[in-house]
Computed example of a mutant assay.
Amino acid sequence: MKIEVKHNRICAGAFLVCMALIIVYLSGIFLSQRVEEQLYPSAGLSETKMLSDYYPDLKGSPVDTEVYIFRGKKPGASMLVLGNTHPTEPSAIVSTTIVLENAMVEEGTLYVIPRVNKSAMSHTDPQDATPLGIHIDTPNGQRYFRVGSRMTNPVHQWPDPDIYYHNAGQLLTGKETRNVDRTYPGRTDGNLTEKICYGIVELIKAEKIDMTIDTHEGPPEYPTIDVMIAHQNAMELAGTTALNLSLEDVEIRVDASPVNLHGFSHRELGDHTDTMAVLVETVNPVMGRLAGKKSEELMLEGRDKFYQYASENSDRLYTEYTAEGKPLNLRVARHVETIMQLAASYNEMDTGKRLEITGVPTYAEIMENGMGQYLGGK
């Protein structure tokens, strides 16, 4: 009997030690999601501000974020590029970083917010089984980019209402109250996510931003992929850009922002400021419901046999999905080229202002050399 009791104590002790080790390991992963990765702005950086400089209520909050400013030698037009609106969308994360780390502005001003929703970067979507991040090889070593959630962390904003009542009277499911791209133009008496949006609106007004580009990804079965969604005041800009992109072998569709679909950047920023608002989407199989294992490999390589089968045997996808898949390198190349072509297309318009950006790699260069070649580091 004593032997059996002693054996049970040993088993219980071993179990507790194993549980303690697991807790320590998982705690390390949990805490790592709150450590910001290093960014390496190009030598063209003029100034770094915080979003709270434009809306002081954000100061000291978990969503206050950096605004990187590149001023040219000559005054001119201005562009704001938004990344990490949804930290589940890695091509938006990486493409915005490439612009930040390579841009040199000769004329006009470029503003880059690579971490629009910092809170959403600090956790993941439950039960989606997405990888915590991706690793990209660069000439200066391996870079790590976290993959977060579409929504503000509930630790920072809770509880969700049953129904989210948008400013314009539109009704959405309650969790969308934590989605930056459903809560524009924001409000001062709103929740934390709405205050992010309000801060961006205040920035656009204060700096008189001419163009605002919001970068995103969507699943292959989603109708708005490989598309620019443009406010009516940006349709000429988007149309010219689509034509110029086709000359670079980048096919992209232009959709008009629905007038009665509220909360989105492409609608509200154009309605509430003078900026030309454009949202740009690529395709990401990890975000889809047909995908196999949602691994880092799938996020990077984009090859998925289930989407390939669906593409070959039905017309339910909004993109052709071949054995080559939709690799991150391709998606990043599309985003970076689209951002640059939007700037170039603005220069073709009769506005009296120009935005000249150099140093950013082209679609062809990223496809040939790989995105890692254009990511900085030490």
Rank of each mutant, 00 (worst) to 15 (best):
T152H: 01
E281N: 11
T322E: 09
A364R: 15
P62L: 07
K294A: 02
I209S: 07
L342P: 13
M371T: 09
I209F: 10
L375F: 05
Q33W: 05
L58I: 13
L245V: 03
I23E: 05
Y374Q: 07
Y222L: 10
G292L: 05
G199S: 15
A343D: 08
Q38W: 06
H123K: 12
F30R: 09
L269K: 04
V5Y: 06
G186M: 06
D304H: 05
K378T: 10
I69C: 12
V155Q: 13
A103C: 12
T130V: 03
I69S: 02
N84W: 04
K195W: 03
T65V: 06
E324Y: 05
P154S: 00
I98K: 03
E217Q: 12
N233V: 03
G72I: 06
P114T: 11
E320Y: 02
G169Q: 07
L31A: 14
I366C: 09
V105T: 08
Y184R: 00
P90S: 11
T282E: 06
T338Y: 03
P87Q: 08
G376Q: 08
L58G: 13
G83D: 12
T215Q: 09
I225P: 01
R303V: 15
V105E: 09
D210H: 08
G174I: 01
L261G: 01
D226Y: 15
T358R: 13
K378H: 14
N140C: 07
D315P: 00
E348K: 07
C18V: 15
S311W: 04
L300Y: 06
A234Q: 06
R150Y: 11
T183S: 15
P75Q: 13
P327A: 14
A238M: 09
L328R: 02
Y318R: 01
I225S: 07
E301T: 04
D189K: 10
Q308N: 14
L16K: 05
L290Q: 01
S42R: 04
L26K: 10
A120N: 07
G72L: 12
F264Y: 10
S32F: 08
A242V: 13
N191E: 04
Y55C: 01
V227C: 13
K195D: 02
R289H: 08
V81C: 11
Y165G: 01
Q33G: 13
V99W: 10
P87W: 04
L82V: 03
V254D: 10
N347I: 01
P361Y: 05
H86R: 09
L247H: 07
H166V: 11
E281H: 12
V99Q: 01
G199E: 04
I366E: 04
N167G: 00
V278I: 15
S149E: 02
A238P: 02
S311G: 14
E356N: 14
Y222N: 13
S32R: 10
D64V: 11
H123E: 01
E324P: 01
D189P: 10
L21I: 14
E66I: 00
G370E: 12
H272W: 10
V201C: 10
P185K: 08
P285L: 15
A14F: 12
L51Y: 03
L21F: 08
K305L: 03
R146W: 02
M121H: 04
R178Q: 00
M287N: 05
F264R: 15
R115Y: 15
